[in-house]
């Protein structure tokens, strides 16, 4: 079978950085490494902003407009009434959005959190009382397990496809997947677009990390 590009490099780099940083964030929080926890969170914030922008500027499989389908599209897919899809299928697309949304919520809660000794404080905790920041910190600890649940489903889905002899892991590493003869190749987004997207993402993360002050 012919192989063609399915995930562009920015999508893959964003994905694998999250794979590293989410467990690292958990580890640093549970091992008293809050300065590292904060840095990890700011980096994740930057990655989320980048991914959001890339969802409009990126290659077709990166774009929200390409992979987000209404309920009918999801049902049709589940009934197997859809032609093979390059990139996220209608159900997988929503799973990606759910993971990104919970991760964004998790970052937001972290920014407003403070530890019980007020030694470690998120850069936006100054906008809340000590009590409210503590309540947010408890939510931050709880929402993590929802994120873990969604990631668990994501990994389980990859396992199910593997049992059905469809390799989803390889393409997320190499970027290429086998396609049927005659299928059109995906037009990969020009590399220069990474620069404005990364610049905006970096600036937003920096601004938030500094407590919304320049």
């Amino acid at each position: 079978m012919r192989r063609t590009a399915v995930w562009d490099l920015p999508v893959r780099v964003t994905h694998w950085l999250l794979v590293v940083l989410i467990p690292f964030s958990w580890w640093s929080a549970t091992h008293d490494q809050l300065p590292w926890h904060r840095r990890s969170g700011y980096t994740i914030l930057g990655l989320l902003v980048f991914r959001l922008i890339w969802g409009f500027l990126g290659s077709p499989t990166a774009r929200f407009s390409q992979f987000l389908r209404g309920p009918r599209g999801v049902v049709a897919y589940l009934r197997g009434k859809v032609a093979p899809i390059m990139g996220h299928n209608p159900l997988g697309g929503w799973s990606v959005v759910a993971m990104l949304a919970v991760l964004a919520g998790q970052v937001a809660l972290g920014l407003f959190s403070v530890d019980e000794d007020s030694v470690e404080a998120g850069p936006l905790s100054k906008f809340l009382s000590f009590d409210a920041s503590r309540a947010v910190a408890h939510l931050h600890a709880k929402l993590f397990w929802i994120l873990v649940g969604l990631i668990g489903l994501h990994i389980a889905a990859i396992g199910v496809y593997a049992l059905r002899r469809r390799n989803l892991l390889g393409p997320m590493i190499s970027g290429a997947a086998p396609v049927a003869e005659g299928a059109e190749a995906m037009p990969v987004a020009p590399a220069w677009r990474v620069f404005p997207a990364a610049a905006i993402a970096g600036a937003v993360a920096w601004f938030v990390a500094h407590g919304l002050k320049i």
Partner: peptide
């Protein structure tokens, strides 16, 4: 204890 936490937080914010 909450009062102490609030005081710590307020001082920390001033320093930052």
């Amino acid at each position: 204890m909450k009062g102490q936490g609030a005081a710590m937080k307020a001082i920390g914010e001033q320093l930052k």
